[in-house]
Amino acid sequence: MKFSVMVNEGPYTHQASDSAYQFIRAALSAGHEIFRVFFYHDGVNNGTRLTTPPQDDRHIVNRWSELASEHDLDLVVCVAAAQRRGIVDPDEAKRNSKDGDNIAPGFRISGLGQLIEAGIESDRLLVFGD
């Protein structure tokens, strides 16, 4: 089965990102494919590498990056939502004359069309949010 997952809330404030992560891990270990994970609304905040939680807490951002590298996941941050919330990759930083970027490893910034495509190409689309 080919799944895509949408994450609509940022890390730590809401459980959505944790739930999505646990669901995806369970789906992968059952042998399913994850076509794409799409981050929207405040969910784009899952994609900043500047996150620094206390050591005794889970590192939600690194956890996504590690899962992406282990399973070759496509983690896509919506560009429009990211621009509003200050999530920037090197290209966006240059284009908008920012003094730096903050996109975490394994994430890429792209358009909303990636979400629609995920809906079209996947067998199931699940949404985690508020």
Binding site: Y40, H41, A80, A81, L112, G113, L115, I116, I120, D130
Partner: peptide, 15 residues
């Protein structure tokens, strides 16, 4: 949610 939802609908319409 409403305004960003509307953005999805308008982009999605092209598909």
């Amino acid at each position: 949610y409403a305004v960003e939802g509307l953005e999805v609908v308008l982009i999605g319409a092209a598909f």
